[in-house]
Nucleic acid binder design. Structure first.
Length: 666
DNA sequence: ATAGGGTTAG
């Protein structure tokens, strides 16, 4: 306990003591002693400014810098790095620029430490232009200067620039260190630049850095995950002498991002078994993986784990929970989590709006949006995407238009391409094709393939072949590898019975060597998620999370029999197959059979066999469900007295008693 | 006494 009495009039000792406390981050003590020192030298001022800046007291640091000046004490090269750091951390742009000017006035901007701090500050301001200007004007640069530039570009979404800086640095004969490699690995991950990443890997091996530095090995794992090289990522992970939570998180998220949520959840289980503590990032990743494959039961277990470990008060985890529930078809659970959240942020509100939108509940989405505004939440681009998309799924044309206009007029947010796409979708789906086209022509930004794809899909609904051809042509130009628009155009021709044109489109797809992504559906039963590929009745894809694989192959026969039974049942109820939706050029009978190979039907058949009467069936599909499956599922829901909740890439369909929640508006 | 480091929800 320090009191006035213990502070003797020994300036030298007190200065040392204050500096010591500041160095340890004990700012209360440091400030107390500081206040009792009459003759403050620059050493003391600098230590206090540094102590404040480095321990989360940025404002205090800046205030003290101003005080230092008014006391007539001249700041030096040991002062500015920390004042600039404080300005950067608080994103005080005006203040930062002023301090920059002050370094120029006293000539300290040529000091390499001050210069490097300026670089870092402008990076935090997201002002990469100014960062570049400062860098180009630096009379002396050291390794830190280059490293700061590299990480500055990466953090501001310009990984390509970072790689260019790295190249220039090599030509200048500067040898990279661990920090350099970390920045470059992050750039490689963002660009999925495997070759460059591998070069960094061998560079790091040569320098003996991989085993010695956990940061570096974790970043390597992350880089390989981002480049879809899971085999190597896994090998590096297994070789780690010490697997920390970040390493686990990287691998778990890598599997989920690469379309293997099952493996992702397995590693999460292994992590728990091995006694490694998950953190909030782990839970966010795992809940995301659950959402991808509709693993509701697994998600529920994760939820209780989150509550037990006390992570449920975290806004990010709460939002991830909401997202998981709504993606698993449980809108009620999602909204319950939302209601219980005490620290809702912008993203939480947006997630609720997205949830309602996905389930076709446009009115609820708009009402949450209004409530959010009434609560004074400052809106961003993202929430407008959520609410506009909700409007388009529910056909709320006037509401959507009004909200779109309010973006600029009321909230001063410039619409970006995602909003334009939503508007085209909104108008087009509501049958206002001319208005949609006019909207595209008047857009202030160049329409992307997404916008034209929305118009193409609207043309299909309005059966406007001319506009469909025009839109399709644009999509082909802008997104030549996307096969979806070819399929859509072919379906449009098929609906008009223009078989020559259908064949022409098919030939085009063949000539370009494009392939349709195989359909895949997921269904969870008794805490086990099963996946079905189109045409795969052997159910070889079945994966269990909690237990070992069971004798599932026997099911092939049962599923086949069930499908025959279902086919008979719906045919008796008046079902006529819509074979125009089959993209392949095969006989009529084969086309009908192919429709019954669709993965969602396999998943439904499996769920009907394996679950008791009345159990809700939840299916997730990796593509947009086809019109014929939509018809069949409506009938199956009525004939088997089952509620079937199906999620495709666009939205949810709740089938019940022969009807779908989308009202066939999708 | 100085500056620069990897994973994260709509």
């Amino acid at each position: 306990m320090i009191t006035c009495n213990t502070l003797q009039n020994n300036t030298y000792l007190n200065t040392k003591l204050a500096a010591f406390y500041a160095n340890c981050g004990q700012m209360t003590e440091a400030q107390f002693i500081f206040g009792h020192i009459v003759l403050k030298n620059s050493f003391l001022w600098n230590f206090m400014i540094r102590g404040f800046a480095c321990n989360g007291y940025s404002l205090e640091s800046i205030v003290l810098y101003r005080e230092m000046m008014s006391f007539g004490q001249k700041p030096n090269n040991f002062t500015y790095p920390f004042v600039l750091m404080a300005c950067g951390n608080m994103v005080l742009v005006e203040m930062g620029r002023r301090v920059h000017c002050e370094t120029v006035v006293c000539g300290l901007d040529s000091n390499v430490f001050v210069g490097n701090s300026l670089l870092a500050m402008y990076a935090k301001f997201k002002d990469v232009e100014m960062m570049r200007i400062v860098f180009d004007r630096m009379p002396v640069r050291d390794l830190t200067s280059w490293n700061t530039m590299i990480s500055g570009y990466v953090k501001n979404g310009e990984p390509g620039e970072a790689l260019l800086v790295f190249g220039t640095m090599g030509k200048a004969g500067i040898i990279a260190d661990c920090t350099t490699l970390l920045g470059i690995l992050s750039a490689c991950a963002a660009l999925a630049a495997l070759k460059e990443g591998e070069a960094v890997h061998s560079n790091a091996i040569q320098k003996n850095l991989v085993k010695a530095n956990n940061f570096l090995s974790n970043s390597l794992i992350e880089m390989y995950c981002s480049c879809n090289s899971m085999v190597i990522a896994k090998r590096l992970f297994e070789e780690l002498t010490w697997k920390d939570t970040v390493a686990w998180n990287s691998l778990i998220s890598g599997y989920a991002r690469n379309g293997n949520s099952f493996e992702s959840l397995r590693y999460f289980c292994r992590m728990l078994v091995e006694g490694v503590l998950p953190d909030k990032v782990t839970f966010v990743i795992v809940l995301g993986a659950c959402g991808l494959i509709t693993a509701l039961q697994f998600g529920l277990s994760v939820h209780s784990c989150i509550v037990t470990k006390g992570f449920d008060t975290n806004a990010m985890v709460g939002t991830a929970l909401m997202d998981m529930y709504s993606k698993c078809g449980s809108l009620a659970c999602s909204s319950h989590v939302f209601e219980e959240m005490t620290n809702k942020n912008l993203v939480s509100w947006s997630a609720m709006i997205t949830g309602y939108g996905l389930h076709g509940k446009g009115r609820e989405a708009v009402s949450v949006f209004q409530e959010m505004k009434a609560n004074g939440i400052v809106l961003d681009e993202g929430v407008f995407t959520s609410v506009l998309s909700a409007c388009s799924h529910a056909g709320l044309v006037n509401e959507g238009k009004e909200i779109f206009h309010s973006m600029r007029n009321v909230h001063n947010i410039k619409p970006v391409i995602a909003h334009y796409s939503c508007m085209v979708d909104l108008l087009g789906r509501a049958g206002r094709l001319d208005e949609a086209y006019e909207f595209v022509e008047k857009m202030e930004v160049k329409p992307t393939s997404d916008v034209w794809a929305a118009l193409l899909s609207a043309s299909r609904l309005s059966r406007n072949v001319e506009l469909a051809e025009l839109s399709a042509q644009k999509v082909f130009e802008l997104h030549p590898k996307g096969v979806g628009s070819y399929v859509c155009l072919s379906n449009i021709y098929a609906a008009e019975q223009r078989w020559d044109d259908v064949e022409r489109v098919r030939a085009l797809v063949r000539r370009k060597g494009l392939k349709k992504e195989p359909g895949c559906s997921f269904v969870e039963l008794d805490k086990v998620v099963h996946s079905f590929l189109v045409g795969d009745k052997s159910h070889q894809q079945a994966v269990e999370i909690y237990a070992k694989l069971k004798e599932l192959c026997k099911l092939a026969v049962e599923i086949y029999a069930k499908l025959n039974e279902l086919c008979k049942l719906v045919s008796e109820a008046g079902y006529k197959p819509d074979t125009s939706l089959v993209f392949y050029d095969v006989g009529e009978e084969v086309k009908e059979k192919m429709l019954w190979d669709h993965s969602e039907r396999l998943a439904i058949a499996f769920a009907l066999i394996k679950s008791g009467p009345g159990t809700i069936i939840r299916i997730t599909k990796n593509l947009r469900t086809c019109g014929d499956c939509h018809t069949v599922t409506k009938l199956i829901s009525k004939l088997t007295c089952r509620e079937i909740i199906m999620r495709d890439t666009h939205r949810f369909h709740h089938f019940r008693d022969g009807y779908c929640s989308c009202g066939d508006y999708w």
